Simulated scan of single mutants.
Amino acid sequence: MSEFTNVTVTREANVYFDGNVTSRKVTFADGSYKTLGIMMPGEFTFGTEKAELMEILAGKLTYRLKGDAQWIDVSAGESFNVPANSSFDIQILELVDYCCSYLD
């Protein structure tokens, strides 16, 4: 899906890691939400409360889930899941455009 309809977009950006990661919250009529963002090249660690689906719209990265030794490559058009109450390390290899869905 390349377009969302009947949504509310939070105007203020979420800014992380000295501006290297930014996102905006998109809220749907049923109260569910996603974030749309950009990640600049670098290495970051994110924590999760809810389970997440990370869809990579453009760019390249590699990630590993908390407790895993193996790094997994992901490119535009691919996605990965992160469990709730966890964390993941991510290395952005080239600018990444992403959509993060928060799962119940």
Rank of each mutant, 00 (worst) to 15 (best):
S2K: 09
S2Y: 10
E3Y: 11
F4D: 14
T5V: 12
N6E: 12
V7S: 08
V7F: 07
T8G: 05
T8A: 10
V9R: 11
V9T: 13
V15L: 09
Y16M: 13
F17C: 10
D18G: 10
G19P: 11
N20Q: 12
V21D: 12
V21W: 11
T22R: 15
R24T: 04
V26C: 07
T27V: 11
T27L: 04
A29N: 14
A29V: 03
D30Q: 07
D30A: 02
S32N: 14
S32C: 09
S32W: 00
Y33W: 13
Y33G: 07
K34P: 01
L36Y: 10
G37N: 05
G37E: 07
I38E: 14
M40Y: 06
P41I: 01
G42E: 01
G42T: 03
E43I: 09
F46H: 06
F46K: 07
G47F: 00
G47W: 04
G47N: 15
E49Y: 08
K50A: 15
E52R: 03
L53G: 05
E55Y: 10
I56V: 15
I56P: 08
L57A: 12
A58D: 15
G59C: 02
G59V: 00
K60Q: 14
L61G: 13
L61T: 05
L61D: 08
T62E: 15
Y63Q: 03
R64A: 06
L65Y: 02
L65H: 09
K66I: 07
G67L: 05
D68H: 09
Q70T: 09
Q70R: 05
Q70G: 02
W71D: 09
I72A: 03
D73S: 15
V74D: 09
V74W: 03
G77V: 05
G77P: 07
E78C: 07
E78L: 04
S79E: 15
F80W: 07
N81F: 12
V82N: 02
V82M: 10
P83E: 02
S86M: 05
S87T: 00
I90T: 13
Q91L: 00
L93G: 08
L93R: 09
L93P: 07
L93I: 12
E94N: 10
V96D: 08
V96C: 05
V96P: 10
D97R: 14
D97V: 02
Y98E: 08
Y98R: 08
Y102C: 04
Y102G: 10
Y102E: 09
L103P: 01
L103V: 10
L103K: 08
